[in-house]
Computed example of a mutant assay.
Amino acid sequence: MGAGSLTCLMFVVVALNAIAAAAGLALFAVAIWVAADGYKLYPISGVSGKDDIFAGAWIAIFTGFAFFLTCIFGIFAALKRSRALMLVYLIIMFIIFLFECASAITAATNRDYLVGNSNFVKKQMLQYYGQDSTQGKQITQTWNRVMEQDECCGADGPQDWIVYNSTLKQMYPTYNWPLSCCKRLSTFDLQDPADCKVGRTGILFTKGCFNYIESVLSHYTWAVSWYGFSVLILVFFTLVIAMIYFMQLE
């Protein structure tokens, strides 16, 4: 390859690495957002050990920042036209590439397990809500917040608490459903406790919370998995061009 063509290829490698570095930094930021769990739904996945979405986010934090640093190193190696430095760059990038593959696949497969249907979330809710344990308290707080914020009740609706056996029913026989299933005043007091207990229309939230939970977990998955896959495609293309450049160096 002529000197002019090699120089053009070098600038392509530099440009692709600059774009990949920015994409890696964006992946780093997005993964931090997921790991921070702004919607506070981790207990719903964590209590059963199905928290791979968040595990994938932690891996993506590492890989995103590692992509950024390695791409900067790749730019330096390309400008130096050093085979040794380019070889080190290619090996490190390939290792990080494999880690990010694991992160994206882990998040995607776990998302399908959690939101494939409402039964898994419902079973967990009925088992742990109202339970006097660390996990029970976390699940209770999470469901109370979700039901009050999204104005919903149960996974598929308030009938979940009546049709199925639950810890709540065992511990509080006089309550058909949690009080968080009912509308509140601006002072956060129940609008009508008596009507709440009997489920009067207009006081009791009738829609289920599963759609909200599914939406949040899907957002998390898109952030970690599908954005991760898009970064992988970019990095793969960058690696191919970088390998061609490496083979042309003397």
Rank of each mutant, 00 (worst) to 15 (best):
L9A: 00
V115L: 07
F28N: 04
G154I: 03
V224N: 04
Y212K: 05
Y227T: 15
A155K: 06
T167N: 15
S218H: 13
S230R: 11
A22D: 06
T109E: 13
N165L: 12
E250Y: 08
A36W: 05
I233S: 04
G4F: 11
T140W: 04
T174F: 15
Y245N: 04
A23M: 12
A108E: 06
A3F: 12
F246C: 06
I75Q: 00
L179P: 01
I213G: 02
W161D: 04
M243E: 09
K137T: 14
I96S: 02
N119C: 11
E214R: 14
F28T: 02
S133K: 08
I95V: 15
P158W: 01
A66C: 06
S180Y: 03
D156A: 07
N211K: 13
W33C: 03
L69A: 05
R83A: 09
W226E: 04
G38Y: 15
Y39H: 12
I44R: 00
I75V: 09
G24R: 07
W33D: 12
L234P: 02
M10I: 11
N144S: 10
G228L: 13
K40M: 14
L249P: 05
R111K: 15
L87R: 11
Y39M: 08
Y42P: 07
E214T: 12
N17I: 01
Y129L: 08
A104K: 01
